[in-house]
């Protein structure tokens, strides 16, 4: 028996919208830790890791140990679009051996209650071990600013070079029409803490990434006012959006390397 009640149902809607362009189908894992997912895009260039901690749910019951639920994200997205932004979402499943999951949407006033049953799928997914890494640079900046930069640069080029030095974080691209460089300096003298750009650098780092993936990651912008970009040479970049009081969504992107 699995029963998860999420008062802020819009969080789940936003999470799925941020994943569905990159992930076709995935196993959602339910354990005492929380509701989680790890999935790669079909090219195995990006990896997505989601955690919604159990204590962030109003009610969290998961009796069957680790219980994977395979879902096609396009179908899940269709169903979650039927939930109102203010709705409370309850996820119910009977446990291993049952091939459906039920989503119940309650309006805040309890006047409208809807349930949608969706078929589960068997998904043969590979789970990767993500080692704890020491990052050469960790940058926290407004998520809307990061989204804007990725969008702007993708009208010029296909790849972005992200460099962190003591001057700041620099995003550079080049294409047929020319080049672009955007530098964001550390800025902690802001009225609101979420508007700050904070750079923690152990050593300078510079890596090249496909902009198409970065742009997909920014679909998670509605989840958080800030984004954290963690870089190490010879490691995938980690782009993390914290999910208020509940957990995170992390996007790992393998760098482009010199031939």
């Amino acid at each position: 028996m699995l029963e998860l009640r999420l008062v802020q149902g819009s969080l789940l809607k936003k999470v799925i919208e941020s994943l569905k362009d990159l992930v076709n189908d995935a196993n959602f894992d339910c354990s005492s830790t929380g509701f989680s997912l790890q999935a790669m895009d079909s090219s195995h260039v990006a990896l997505m890791s989601l955690l919604l901690r159990s204590d962030g749910f109003e009610h969290y019951r998961c009796d069957h140990g680790n219980f994977p639920m395979g879902m096609k994200l396009e179908n899940l997205s269709k169903i979650l679009k039927c939930a109102g932004n203010d709705d409370i979402i309850t996820i119910k499943a009977d446990g291993p051996g049952n091939d459906t999951v039920t989503f119940m949407f309650e309006s805040p006033s309890q006047e409208k209650i809807a349930d949608y049953e969706m078929k589960l799928m068997d998904i043969d997914s590979e789970h990767l071990g993500i080692p704890e890494a020491e990052f050469h640079a960790i940058v926290r900046m407004p998520s809307s600013e990061f989204a804007r930069i990725c969008k702007d640069l993708s009208s010029i080029g296909d790849t972005v070079v992200i460099s962190v030095t003591k001057e700041g974080i620099k995003f550079s691209t080049k294409g047929d029409i020319g080049t672009a460089n955007v530098v964001c300096r550390q800025n902690t003298t802001v009225d609101k803490p979420e508007d700050a750009t904070i750079i923690e650098m152990q050593q300078p780092v510079s890596l090249t990434f496909a902009l198409r993936y970065m742009n997909s990651f920014t679909k998670a912008t509605p989840l958080s006012n800030t984004v954290t970009i963690s870089l190490s040479s010879d490691l995938p970049v980690v782009v993390e959006y914290k999910i208020a009081e509940m957990g995170y969504i992390r996007f790992y992107l393998a760098p482009k390397i010199e031939e």
Binding site: H127, L128, G129, A254, K256
Partner: peptide, 14 residues
Amino acid sequence: KCLQSRIMDYFSRE
């Protein structure tokens, strides 16, 4: 010339 690496080049299967 830049080549795209893959996640499996860095993380291994559990």
